[in-house]
Amino acid sequence: MIWVETIVNGLLLGGLYALVGLGLGFAFGVMRIVNVAQGDFIVAAAFLGVFLLPWTPVHPLLVIIPVAIAAFGIGMLLQWLLINRVLGHDQIPQILLTFGLAIVLRNGMVELFGANTRSINVGDLRFMGFDFLGLKLGVLPVLILAIAVFLFATLHLWLRKSDMGRLIRATADDHRIVQLCGVNFRSIYAVAMGLAMALSAVAGILLAMRGSFTPYSGADRLLIAFEVVVIGGLGSFWGMFLGGMVLGVAQLVALKLDPASGLMYGHIVFILILIMSPSGLAGAFRR
């Protein structure tokens, strides 16, 4: 029974991991851009959450909303002011630019806030639990999974149904043709990057509510996001969800067996999947 509980908890954590990967995967799917600074932006969002917490009315969980809006704006600015200037066939300038940004951000946060471990306090919610078919589950992890599923579904529907979603999908297919139709693809890119950052920010806040973070957590967050996207098969939407689940379960089961292992077994599972199925899990099922 303890193992069933571990696996269920892994699935709950996996939903959050999937959300961590969603921003990176979405940006890659639309723009073929890999924002290496995403992990550090996730941590920055958590810091913003910590500071906005005292001013958040009703419930601490609502701090997600202002942080997501701020992240959307920052993402648009980032794309307009920096990444749009180095777009081109060669991906190296974009990747190196965001890598530089990541270094600035990480060390800036250490300088400003110190290297202490923090978390976002959600009050009693963190300790509340309930019994479900004999399993003891936390309310917060279940709530977080619900938020992750909701965001995946909403983004999916929004991309299918709305005008902006249609434009984004068209841009992902071929940004030059979108340009020919009189839409500046660079502004679409800015919107997409804003969205990617807002999604990452939500993931960052939720991670900080479930666990803890330091200014150095960005690297781990980036690796998780990246593994989720690759396991999911680069751009497959629900594949990413599956990827998160696989990582979450792998990590919690491994922590049960070897409490000092940290993220190591998650990394190993990722490499194993890469060896067995290079196009990710989604690719394995498609075949």
Binding site: L82, R85, V86, P93, L96, L97, F99, G100, L101, A102, I103, V104, L105, N107, G108, E111
Partner: peptide, 12 residues
């Protein structure tokens, strides 16, 4: 931080 900022500037 300066190393990172310099890398960003050079790319731009």
């Amino acid at each position: 931080m300066m190393l990172g900022a310099a890398a960003v500037l050079v790319m731009l």
